[in-house]
Nucleic acid binder design. Structure first.
Length: 558
RNA sequence: GCGAAAGUAGUGUAGUGGUUAUCACCGGGCGUUGCCAACGCCUGAACCCGGGUUCGAGUCCCGGCUUUCGCACCA
């Protein structure tokens, strides 16, 4: 069992920065809070993580990947509710002018997330907490601040307000119609997107846990609300720690949780199961994972069942994935704002016949005849039963209008209604890739004592490891260097495979360098290799070695 | 940024100020055929947005937005 201490965290952060994995961004200019950069090793890790994510969820068969812009017009995020709702409550310290998040300064049992800013203001007057910067207890009014980055599309007078997107989801909702058509107009189906999101967090903290620019991966999975139970097969017999809304923390399999009604919706359960198996595949420790159900009062108002996948690491339990049943909120919101239909069609089991017989006006005759009374005449005529005979007298105010046969015509409309349009519901699994990345690394990091000094290794999953193997010549002489380079080059050419070449320093030092960045195998070319075309394979996690002929290398590494 | 033109189903389009807005391809269902845009029946889908004129606006006027094309700018 891993022990997450401050000392370990410090060592790990040092390693990440030293080895080009992860570091605060723009440090030579003094850095910028909430922005991190991935280096040469970290960049590959992130790429592998996002590829694995796409691969895992597209292989379910009914989810497609799209890509929409990060710069998003005002109207889109106004419709989605972000302009009005995507806010934090802030207070300013009157002594030192530091701005803090109001809810973070208050004790948790007050449940500050659910209070209005005036309720919060009252608390800050009656029971002021200390300013974390200067210790003062004088506070300004609590105000709400929108967390989206403002920008403009266009310049000067042609500028139109826009935001950097706070989530990728809206792009999937706004292109619903084209995805619906792609799926031959049949539910269920999903769309996914991997990309950057931006939130102007008031106080980015905890390393890279709360970022202002971050990588997210989201799925919007659309379902018919009339189908009460989607039968979905999933392989997940794992016992998973769950913290239900108002129950005890306990281990269940997803199937058990569904049976007991703890997980309320089958599709939510399905994605929780898929999410957990994905996380295990990429190296998350199941014993450091739990599923936490949102309290009813904590859920966004549109959500019907909402679970967080929380991972435990150096910063405690951190929400890394959310799986939310969002009902039809988003599609409905965009539909209202745009008057576009964002619906799916469902046939009735029996077509319905609707007929209307009666009268209406002949506009080309009645219009000129009745002029401004024409709309009233039309309403009147259409209210008459079909057996009415003309002429008819119609009183409007003091006037008396004679409606002749030439002013009207019969209508005889028969319609068959075969089905109806409905708003699909959506289940949204949303992954914070940077947070998952952090926990992959945090769970993979092992430090040991080796001959008195600290020895670090990242036991990364082979699915995400930034370098698949390392090739070392035992000595860079007698042709070993050339042989190693040849092997390195041919392995590096394999697709989705990268080999790391290192010829400097002692062999032990090179193994250590490889372990630090999570390379699973080191291939060493020694004197014997020159004679019999065999090499040494050395395993990262056990340190054990075996010999293998060069011809079998490729098959072995795959 | 300047100038011009155009915005009607998913696509391409028709539409004298007055029907339930035309047609084709397209999409969905069923049938037939059985292997690379076949056929038949049923069915789904649109007047860019906002004002104005009018009894009545897809149609006329004004404004906005978007697109296309020139010119300018930028890469």
């Amino acid at each position: 069992m891993l022990k997450f201490t401050d000392e370990r965290l410090g060592n790990l952060l040092g390693l990440l920065k030293r080895r080009g994995i992860l570091a605060p961004a723009f440090e030579i200019h003094g850095g910028a809070k909430g922005l991190y950069e991935y280096g040469p090793i970290g960049g590959r890790l992130l790429r592998n993580l996002s590829n694995q994510w796409v691969e895992h969820f597209t292989s379910l068969g009914d989810i497609v990947e799209i890509s929409s812009p990060t710069v998003t017009p005002y109207a889109v995020l106004e419709a989605s509710g972000h302009v009005g709702e995507f806010t934090d409550s802030t207070v300013t310290c009157i002594e030192c002018h530091a701005i803090s998040r109001a809810d973070h300064l208050l004790a948790e049992e007050l449940n500050p997330d659910n209070l209005t800013s005036s309720q919060l203001s009252t608390i800050f007057l009656d029971n002021p907490p200390e300013c974390p910067e200067c210790g003062s207890t004088k506070w300004s009014e609590v105000t709400t601040t929108n967390l989206m980055f403002n920008t403009n599309l266009g310049i000067a007078s042609s500028a139109k307000p826009a935001f950097l997107r706070p989530e990728t989801a809206q792009g999937m909702f706004t292109s619903f119609s084209s995805i619906y058509r792609h799926f031959r107009e049949k539910l269920p189906f999903g769309a996914m997107q991997v990309g950057k999101g931006y939130r102007n967090e008031i106080s980015p903290r905890q390393g890279m846990i709360r970022l202002r620019e971050f990588n997210m991966a989201e799925i919007e999975y659309f379902i018919d609300p009339n189908i009460p139970k989607y039968e979905r097969d999933f392989e997940s017999n794992h016992k998973i720690m769950m913290v239900p809304e108002d129950g005890e923390e306990r281990e269940y399999t997803i199937a058990e949780a569904l049976e007991k009604g703890i997980v309320k919706h089958a599709v939510v359960g399905f994605f929780l199961a898929e999410t957990v198996s994905f996380l295990i595949d990429i190296g998350i420790d199941l014993s450091l994972l739990r599923l936490r159900q949102h309290q009813t009062n904590e859920m966004a108002h549109y959500a019907q069942d909402c679970w967080d996948v929380e991972l435990f690491g150096s910063y405690g339990w951190i929400e890394c994935v959310g799986v939310a049943h969002r009902g039809c909120f988003d599609l409905e919101a965009h539909e209202k704002a745009t008057n576009q239909r964002l619906r799916a069609w469902r046939d009735f089991s029996e077509p319905k016949e609707v007929s209307k017989k009666g009268w209406t006006i002949d506009g080309s005759r009645a219009g000129p005849a009745f002029r401004q009374h024409s709309p009233a005449v039309k309403t009147y005529v259409e209210s008459l039963p079909e057996e009415t005979e003309f002429p008819q007298v119609y009183h409007i105010g003091k006037e008396e209008l004679l409606i002749a046969e030439e002013h009207v015509k019969r209508i005889d409309i028969k319609n068959t209604i075969n089905g109806e349009w409905f708003l699909p519901h959506v289940v949204e699994p949303a992954f914070g890739l940077d947070r998952i990345m952090w926990h992959i690394i945090d769970h993979a990091y092992f430090q040991q004592e080796k001959e008195g000094s600290a020895y670090h290794s990242l036991r990364l999953s082979n699915l995400v490891t930034p370098m698949n193997c390392a090739v070392f010549p035992l000595f860079d002489k007698d042709g070993m260097g050339e042989m190693a380079k040849t092997i390195h080059k041919s392995l590096n050419k394999l697709s989705n495979f990268s080999s790391f070449y290192d010829a400097s320093g002692s062999i032990g030092r090179r193994y250590a360098r490889a372990d630090e960045i999570g390379i699973p195998f080191c291939i060493t070319i020694d004197h014997q290799s020159l004679d019999d075309e065999s090499v040494t394979i050395r395993y990262r996690d056990s340190g054990e070695q075996e010999r293998l002929s060069i011809g079998k290398l490729e098959a072995f590494l795959r």
